[in-house]
């Protein structure tokens, strides 16, 4: 293990950190733009922005056409009016699930600031998209798992535990309790790798750390730069 694996880490450019290619479809606000066929919406968004006049216009047209439909129905009995099919198409489109993936976990923790440098864990490549695993296939009422492997800036870096704690607190606050979070130092990146891993994943020690005001202050400072 060379003495300084990541001693003077080359600072990555914040804008070039891995980011999610905006999925334009879910930019659309369900019903505010009416029910344009999905395809037309996608096409328009390739050309102009979400608030382009043409998109608004088409949205308005569809909204009025739908209103005509619901108004012109023969006058059904009272209760139906309430449940007038507001928009079946809209609700299905909405059910479509955005899975929690590695990129989402990365976005949560990449902007945590390093306790030592005025830089983020993403910039220092302490956390990398490739080192994050998410196992969450079996539904919201089942257990799921997130494994984050971190690369400390220097091998005997005493702050590895503090960085690990910062990541754990951020994830525990941001994820549902069904997620079991494991934080490990990447193989061969730290002299006392096992001890640090053990401490980072001892639920009781972490809980105790979170009751230490001074430590919590430092962690809050680290999390203040989260986007």
């Amino acid at each position: 293990m060379s003495e300084f694996i990541n001693e003077n880490p080359d600072i990555l450019d914040e804008t070039l950190l891995p980011s999610r290619k905006e999925d334009i479809t879910n930019e659309l606000f369900g019903d505010a733009l009416g029910k344009i066929t999905h395809e037309r919406k996608r096409q328009l968004l390739q050309i102009g922005s979400v608030d382009s006049p043409v998109l608004k216009n088409i949205g308005l047209l569809d909204k009025l056409l739908n209103q005509q439909l619901s108004l012109d129905e023969t006058v059904p009995d009272l209760t139906d009016i309430e449940t007038a099919t507001e928009s079946d198409e809209n609700t299905e489109e909405e059910e479509e699930e955005d899975p929690i993936d590695a990129q989402e976990i990365y976005d949560l923790i990449a902007h945590i600031s390093d306790p030592e440098h005025p830089l983020t864990l993403g910039q220092l490549a302490v956390v990398n998209l490739a080192d994050i695993e998410v196992h969450d296939t079996n539904g919201k009422d089942k257990m799921a798992e997130v494994i984050v492997r971190i690369t400390p800036t220097i091998t005997h870096c005493s702050l590895a535990t503090l960085i690990g704690l910062g990541i754990r607190v951020r994830l525990e606050r941001s994820l549902s309790p069904r997620f079991r979070i494991t934080i490990l130092l990447k193989k061969g990146t730290h002299q006392s790798e096992n001890q640090v891993n053990k401490q980072l994943n001892d639920k009781e020690r972490v809980a105790a750390a979170c009751e230490n005001d001074q430590l919590l202050g430092v962690v809050s400072k680290m999390l203040s730069t989260c986007k």
């Binding site: 955005d98 929690i100 949560l108 606050r173 069904r178």
Partner: peptide, 29 residues
């Protein structure tokens, strides 16, 4: 909200929860 099916909602929920966690917390040094 943390388990909402839509990522945008989850993100906003995290920011809202953080705001309430820090409610009344004296700002760190």
């Amino acid at each position: 909200g943390l388990d909402d099916s839509k990522r945008r909602v989850r993100k906003q929920c995290i920011d809202t929860k953080q705001a309430y966690l820090e409610l009344g917390q004296v700002p760190f040094e």
